[in-house]
Design a binder for these strands. Sequence first.
DNA 1: TAGGCCATCTGGTCCT
DNA 2: AGGACCAGATGGCCTA
Length: 138
Amino acid sequence: MENYLNYPCEETWEQRIFSVSSYQNVETQPVAKQRCQANARERDRTQNSVNIAFNTLRLLIPTEPADRKLSKIEILRLAGSYITHLDNQLYTGEMEQPCLQKSDVIERDKSLCTFCWSAVKKDKSPACHSNSYCKTPR
DNA sequence: TAGGCCATCTGGTCCT
DNA sequence: AGGACCAGATGGCCTA
């Protein structure tokens, strides 16, 4: 079937529908309208719910520099790493980085420690060496 | 140019 | 029935 909804349809969905032959049938118009409305809702949900949540979460993750651009998957992984770190710090008082722990799960994301990730990307000495969290051998 | 990332569309499922 | 949520597909943009 022709991809009749690959258009923004916020204001003139009727015109769009009438411009596509397979949807010139009057009986199918309500279906197309519902699909357009569903697309708009999904667009809105992604932009105003999902992305805002990612941006909010991003603000809670310390990086060097602070405004470093992170992809969504990086935000999720770093958030997990950071939570692990805070949890460890809260209950044990230790300052060990999550990325240095030997858990298999964490091992895969070893290079995504909040405190040294930026340095890993730049292939230089980890920025975390300048603070008390870092236990990486210098 | 290939790969990563993202926005958007789409159809299915679940919930109210 | 309609809306929310989700995952897969797709195409565009950007960077190494």
